[in-house]
Nucleic acid binder design. Structure first.
Lengths: 240, 240
DNA sequence: CGATTTATTTGACCTAGATCAACGACGCCG
DNA sequence: CGGCGTCGTTGATCTAGGTCAAATAAATCG
C-alpha cells in the first residue's frame, strides 16, 4: 500500500522535494517501505537492479571487494540520499546496511518512467549524482595521497559535516558532537588503511586534543576547523 | 560562428548523439571550438564555471592537489567525454590538457537551458555521469586496496579499454597495441604511487612478458585477459 | 551476574613502496 | 654534431603503515 509522503522524515531533503503535491502522489503509489537490519546486505555486486530507493533512516555503505578479503568502502549514504542506479540493469557495488536502515523503494523501471515524465525530478537526481561525483573525487584524492593521520581527520570531518548536515559553515571553531555510524573496521575500509592504523590515529588525535572520545563511537570535536587543518582540508567547508 | 556538427568526429558517441537534427542545430549555435595546447591548464580548481564542453580530441586530466605538491589525478577524459559541471558555479578540480585538446564548448547557462528543454539530452548526461561514478568507484577501490603491481596493470587495462573503446569483450586473450596518453608521472598521480614505483612495475610487467614496450609510451599487450588477472580485475570486461 | 564473544587499543616487528641518488635515453636547439 | 634539459630506469636505503600478537573493554547471552 502507498505510504503517506506528507509525513516522510526526508520529504524535502530527498529527491522528492522536487515534486509537486500531485506528482508526489503518483510517486507514493509506486513506493514501498522496507526495513533492513544492521549488518545485512541490501544488494550484492552483480545483483539485478530491480529497485532504487531513498534512504529514510540509517546508514548504508557501498563496497567493492576482492575474493581474498580486501575490501573498500566506495560510498557512505545517509538519510535522504538516493540509493541505486537508474538505467543500469545490474549493481556494480554491494550495498550493506551499517545500522538498521529504512528505505523507500521504487521499482526501477517505474522510477525511470517517472524520471522521464518529470524533468524536475531528473534534474534534481542529476544534481545529486554530480555532487556525489565531486565527493568521491575528493575521496580518491584523500585515499591516494594523504597520510594516515590526514585520512582519519578527513573522514571525521566528512562524517561530522554529513551528520548534522546543516553543515554550511556557521561559525568558525565550532564544536561538534556526534556518534560514529561506522566501526573502526569500516573506517579502515573507507580509508584504505588497517583497523590498527585507524585506531592508532584516533588515539593520536585524542592525545593532541583534536578530538575527545567518550566511548569508541562517540566523538566530540572541540574545534572543527582545527580538525580540518589536520586533515589537510580547505578551511572553508566545501559548499554542498 | 556555429560549427557544423554533421562533420563532428564525436557526433554520435558524445552527448549530442541524443539529439535530433533540429536540436543539434540549436546546440551548434551556442557551441564554439577551442584548441588547448598540451600541458596547459583548461581551468583551475575554484575557477568560475563559465562553460561546459565535449572533448573532440586529445586527453584531459582532472586533478586535485595540495599546496605541498601532492597531486592526484581524479579523472581522465577522452574524446567524446563530457567536461564540466552543470548547475555548479565553480570547478572543484583542475582540468589540464594532457595532449593537445580540442573542445566543443558551450556557455554553461545556455547549456543548462538546453538540458531543461531537451530531456533526452539530460537523460544521456545523467547516464554518462552515472557511468563516470561507477568508474571512479572502481578507481577508488584500486587506489585504496591494490598493490603497486595490480594498480599499474589495472591502469593499463583501463586505458586500453578506453583507447580502442570498441572495448566490449570481443575475443578472450586479445592483443592490444596503443600509445599511452600519459607520462609516468601522470600514471603515478592516477595511482597514488611515485614515478619510480610505476617505472619499476612497468619493468616488472615487461620482464613477466605481460606487456611489451617498444618505447616508453608505446604499449603492446599480448594478452589482455592476463593483464586483467594481474590487475585483479574481473576477467569479463565490465560492461560499459 | 559471570562466561563468552567481539570490538578496540597497544606494542613489537616487518615490508611495500617512498625517498634519495645516479645514470641512460631521447629530443631540441645552436 | 655536441651540449642540455626532460623523462624514464635502476639501485641503495629508509619509513609509514602493515602484520602479528597480546591486552583491555564492551556487548551478548545464558
Amino acid at each position: 500500500m502507498a505510504n503517506r509522503c506528507e509525513t516522510c522524515a526526508v520529504r524535502h531533503r530527498s529527491l522528492c522535494g522536487a515534486l509537486e503535491q500531485k506528482e508526489v502522489e503518483r510517486l507514493s503509489q509506486i513506493s514501498r517501505r522496507t526495513t533492513i537490519p544492521a549488518g545485512k546486505a541490501i544488494v550484492a555486486e552483480g545483483d539485478k537492479a530491480v529497485f532504487v530507493a531513498n534512504i529514510l533512516s540509517g546508514t548504508v555503505k557501498l563496497t567493492r571487494s576482492l575474493e581474498d578479503g580486501r575490501r573498500q568502502i566506495v560510498g557512505l549514504q545517509f538519510p535522504s540520499d538516493f540509493l541505486g542506479r537508474p538505467f543500469r540493469t545490474h549493481w556494480s557495488v554491494q550495498a550493506e546496511a551499517v545500522s538498521e536502515v529504512e528505505l523507500c523503494q521504487f521499482d526501477r523501471k517505474q522510477f525511470e518512467q517517472m524520471i522521464t515524465d518529470f524533468p524536475t525530478l531528473e534534474q534534481r537526481l542529476l544534481a545529486r549524482v554530480l555532487d556525489e561525483l565531486d565527493r568521491i573525487r575528493e575521496w580518491l584524492f584523500i585515499v591516494g595521497r594523504k597520510t594516515a593521520a590526514e585520512r582519519v581527520a578527513s573522514l571525521l570531518v566528512m562524517i561530522a559535516d554529513r551528520e548534522h548536515d546543516a553543515g554550511c559553515g556557521s561559525s568558525l571553531h565550532e564544536t561538534v558532537v556526534f556518534d560514529l555510524p561506522i566501526s573502526r573496521s569500516e573506517m579502515a575500509d573507507c580509508l584504505g588503511l588497517t583497523i590498527e592504523t585507524v585506531s592508532r590515529q584516533m588515539s593520536q588525535l585524542t592525545a593532541q586534543g583534536a578530538i575527545d572520545l567518550r566511548n569508541s563511537r562517540s566523538v566530540h570535536i572541540p574545534d572543527l576547523q582545527r580538525l580540518r587543518r589536520i586533515g589537510g582540508l580547505a578551511v572553508d567547508p566545501a559548499a554542498i
